[in-house]
Computed example of a mutant assay.
Amino acid sequence: MKVLVAGGTGFIGSNLCEELADRDHEVTALSRSPDDGSLPPGVGSAMGDVSAYESIAETVADHDAVVNLVSLSPLFQPSGDATHEGVHLRGTENLVRAAEDGGVERFVQMSGNGADPNSPIEFIRTKGEAERVVRESALEWVIFRPSVVFGDGDEFVGFTKLVTTPYVTALPGGGKTRFQPIWVGDLVPILADSLEGDEHVGETYEIGGPEVLSLADVTKLAYEADGKSVTILPVPLSLAKIGFTALSPVPFVPFGPDQARSLKMDNTIADNDVTAFGRTEAELRTLGSYLGLERSPPDEAEREVV
């Protein structure tokens, strides 16, 4: 199968390209600035910007399947001229149009957990609007809504350390916002499986890891891996929102009101659809294991913030 991975040079994309190449698919990574040297062996590259239809139409038409991984970060404000609407919604519209015009059969869309076209949070709203575009298409589509993804080259653990300090640190709401992080090495085989066979067509899958961790839990794990401890001091979410909003115009501060709103919402999965791909949560890698820590999921007592 000839597969085009839009966003194929990114964190998840490069891992997926390698997985697909290992399965003997003919894989091309689509990027605005492709770097062949950063791609796995056997993976080709193509230049294109999903926000500009003419730059991608010919490339898309030459493939059997498209995986759309192009996304802005939910953790940071968009930089430059990029907008959530331009990247998530218009980009998806262009990829879907190019796929329909070019005779592509399968279309896999990477959405986000909680995607909702009525959300006040731009990342979540535009992800929800993009899902609607995919569902209304004539393509054989599959949609994934993962919680946060971790692994080599991710931004999740790095973001946690960016907004905290070792030993003593403050977190909005005491860091009680919950996540269900999934290792990229567990996620990409699931994405690849959705391209092979027809049983997943027309389905939307919510995917998470084997444990639920609060932001405080993740912070403690990140510093424990560095041989450091940390005590969490709570900051009221209302004050955090005021601070993020006030700092949002400052170029070197990557947070804004959307990030403050996001901290009011848990990023967890009600029914983990990894089972639809023959996997169980018990088989998935924990964040602690990835960080080199042998640790079971924290119990409720451990979650209490002093």
Rank of each mutant, 00 (worst) to 15 (best):
T169V: 13
T169M: 14
T169R: 07
T169Y: 14
A170V: 12
A170K: 11
A170T: 10
L171G: 12
L171K: 10
L171I: 12
P172E: 13
P172G: 14
P172F: 14
P172R: 10
G173P: 02
G173Y: 08
G173V: 14
G173M: 05
G173W: 08
G174D: 05
G174F: 09
G174R: 04
G174Y: 05
G174K: 01
G174P: 06
G174W: 09
G175S: 03
G175K: 01
G175W: 09
G175Y: 03
K176C: 06
T177V: 15
T177A: 12
R178N: 08
R178T: 14
R178D: 09
F179I: 00
F179N: 00
Q180F: 11
Q180R: 00
P181L: 03
P181E: 04
I182S: 00
I182Y: 07
I182K: 01
I182L: 10
W183C: 03
V184H: 03
V184Q: 03
V184C: 05
V184L: 06
V184R: 00
V184S: 09
V184T: 01
G185F: 08
G185L: 04
D186M: 05
D186K: 02
D186P: 07
L187K: 06
V188D: 12
V188W: 14
V188I: 13
I190P: 10
I190M: 15
A192S: 14
D193G: 00
D193V: 00
S194P: 14
L195N: 01
L195I: 00
L195M: 01
E196G: 03
E196D: 11
E196N: 06
E196C: 02
G197R: 03
G197K: 01
G197Y: 02
G197P: 05
G197E: 02
G197H: 03
D198N: 15
E199D: 15
E199H: 05
E199C: 10
E199A: 12
H200W: 13
H200C: 01
V201P: 11
V201H: 05
V201L: 05
G202Q: 05
G202V: 02
E203T: 08
E203Q: 13
E203S: 10
T204K: 05
T204D: 05
T204A: 10
Y205C: 05
Y205A: 07
Y205F: 15
Y205M: 10
E206D: 15
E206K: 07
I207N: 14
I207S: 13
G208E: 12
